[in-house]
Design a protein around this nucleic acid. Structure first.
Lengths: 154, 154
DNA sequence: TTGCGTGCAAAGGTTTTGCATGGCA
DNA sequence: TGCCATGCAAAACCTTTGCACGCAA
């Protein structure tokens, strides 16, 4: 047989967790503790192993977050986040989606002119988000909260 | 006094290593082993501590590489890589510099329209470089090797 | 002489792995 | 019943920290 053949309780609980957290980002610890709070018990190794399998299958995305903690994201369908990019705020750690035409322009440019095939799934733009800039006393010109689903974009 | 006040042998050897590796990227292990090969002895903790100090001073850049290994880059002068971006090839691991007008356009766009201040120093664009694409049998349209200092860019 | 810098070892944290047991099919 | 999945503990890693000693100023 092959890996992932059995339908176990742990697998169902983890998938249920993922369903609720569609498109959201989380660490192994968050999974363990959240399921623990629900009274569901799941071993840490199981979470690691299953998320690894799901990452290979493309159900979740795996990437390095701040402080070397591996983060995972559940992608609704396989092509969910393939056409947009992610920005991570280096202060609050939040990860924002940028579905923006300019990103596609940049992708095409890097491919045509630099011979580089950019991978939106693995690339994370790092910077400081609007909220943290405001809290840090920075002048914030942009008014609307357009982080998820921006209408200002080309 | 303050940290970094003394001029020690270890510090000189590490700085010498950095000088030879200007703009290049390396891990703590690479520093330790390379210096070891030269017959110079330096403690791992010392490398960690000194690189941390240099990162605070802006002499090196610190970022998370693949597999959670912290990578460092020596920046020639403090403002060396502040105005351009880096692309990392997920196959060969090479890190390329992209000094390109479109990147600045993108920065400004993210700031004005998304309220996000992109940090070129911490952002790494991930994808597959021209060489690896060619080796992988991919059609490569772009002929010239314009990775460092591209003339095709806006 | 002062006190920062160094190196060793230990601790800290995350992730992986070995192995006996559990449970799905 | 067969064998994958699980969980525990241990191991493997990278990184940080404590502490005594070394050494630059």
């Amino acid at each position: 047989m092959m890996r992932g053949a059995y339908n176990t309780r742990q697998k169902r609980e983890l998938l249920s967790f993922l369903k609720e957290r569609s498109m959201q980002h989380f660490s192994v610890d968050e999974v363990v503790f959240e399921l623990q709070d629900r009274g569901e018990r799941i071993g840490r190794s199981t979470v690691y192993r299953y998320l690894e399998l799901l990452a290979e299958q493309g159900v979740v995305r795996k990437y390095q977050g701040v402080q070397g903690i591996t983060q995972y994201q559940h992608v609704e369908d396989a092509s969910g986040c393939d056409d947009h990019f992610h920005m991570m705020c280096s202060r609050c750690g939040n990860l924002l989606h940028v579905d923006c035409g300019l990103m596609r322009v940049m992708s095409e440019h890097l491919m045509k002119e630099h011979g580089f095939r950019l991978d939106p799934r693995d690339t994370i733009l790092v910077g400081v988000c609007e909220k943290c800039r405001a809290e840090g006393g920075e002048a914030v010109e942009h008014g609307a909260d357009c982080h998820e689903g921006c209408h200002h974009c080309v």
